[in-house]
Every structure is written in C-alpha cells, then in structure tokens.
C-alpha cells in the first residue's frame, strides 16, 4: 500500500470530507512524527508502535574500494518499535483486542 492508496481508501470511507483535506490529514500525521523525531522527541502510539531516534557515535569507516579510513560523523537514526498488538497481528496470532483480560 502506498500513501496515495491510503488516501484513496480514506476518501472512500469519508464521503463527507474533501480529498485535499484527507491529503492534509495524512501529511500532517507523518509530518508531525518526523518533526518530533527531529526535535529529539519520541512518538508512542499504543497498539501500533513507537518511533524514536537513536544516536549513533562518530566512527571511522572505510572506503571499501580503496581501503582508506574515512571519518563518519555522529548521526541520529530513526527507529520504529512495533507495538505488541501489531506485532502479534503481523505474525498471524489471534488478536485479543476484546478478548480475555489477562495481563
């Protein structure tokens, strides 16, 4: 599924909304997540997952062709940790969304 397919599905599901509004909604969601990570914040969506940015230390890399050492600067890498419910659903386990209350 691509972003445009996601938008098309939402447009069909919400006939009372204009397509440009749906597009703005989808863009806002993903933009806010990216902006939060850029600020160093994390985003936690229960049942779905959590986005965070992991800091990587500077290191010395190597040009694989010449073998020359090249300094690699410190950087932040976006990371997504799937939530329990989504992880189980992807793995084909029966989701107990409204099931027994065992914890």
């Amino acid at each position: 599924m691509t972003k445009s397919e996601l938008i098309a599905a939402l447009v069909a599901e919400n006939p009372h909304l204009r397509q440009p509004d749906i597009e703005l909604i989808v863009a806002t969601i993903f933009d806010e997540i990216t902006a939060a990570l850029a600020r160093g914040d994390r985003v936690e969506l229960r049942g779905f997952g959590a986005f965070s940015a992991k800091q990587r230390d500077p290191r010395t890399g190597r040009n694989p062709r010449t073998g020359a050492a090249v300094p690699v600067a410190a950087k932040a890498v976006p990371y997504f940790k799937p939530g329990k419910e989504l992880r189980e659903r992807v793995n084909g386990e029966a989701s107990a969304a409204t099931g027994p209350t065992a914890s």
């Binding site: 599924m1 691509t2 996601l6 909604i25 989504l86 992807v90």
Partner: peptide, 23 residues
C-alpha cells in the same frame, strides 16, 4: 481520522502487505 489511518496501515501489514509512505 487518526485512528482510521493507523487502522488502515495495520490492516495492510497484518495481511503481509508492505506500506510505503513517500518522504
């Protein structure tokens, strides 16, 4: 609407489909 978006993405992934959001 936020819930719908997360639901649609989750459904696709649960069905084994990749979800590609440009940018």
């Amino acid at each position: 609407l936020l819930e719908s978006v997360l639901h649609r993405v989750s459904e696709a992934l649960a069905g084994g489909e990749a979800v590609k959001i440009a940018a």
